[in-house]
Amino acid sequence: MAGHIVPARTYFLVFAALVVLTAVTTAVAFVDLGPLNTVVALAIAVCKACLVVLFFMHVKYAPGLTRVVVVTGFLWLALLIGISLSDVVTRPWTPIPQGWQTSSASPSPANQP
């Protein structure tokens, strides 16, 4: 909080790290990693976000209560995404006996009750 003075060097180092990570993201975009494409891109993005939050937003030097607030924010985001996924992921588990029918297809006799 107020009182803690961060040396300018730290800011420049963090900035350099962010630039390097941006370059890595761009470079990786040219390599096809299959399903890992998104995973890698997001992992790098998360690292960058952490750097910004910890250093530029001073959370690393903040008192405990402030850190609790920050962690809670991210935890709640995780709840929102995670529990919503619990619906999206399990939706196809329910067997649909007749199969879906698109509105354009004419009803086939087999599907009539």
Binding site: I83, D87, T90, R91, W93
Partner: peptide, 21 residues
């Protein structure tokens, strides 16, 4: 109160497993 929201969506097409939880 942040963990129960799907009870508004039981008949929305939400997964029945999520509905159970």
């Amino acid at each position: 109160s942040f963990l129960v929201w799907g009870h508004h969506m039981f008949v929305s097409g939400q997964s029945v497993y999520a509905g159970l939880v």
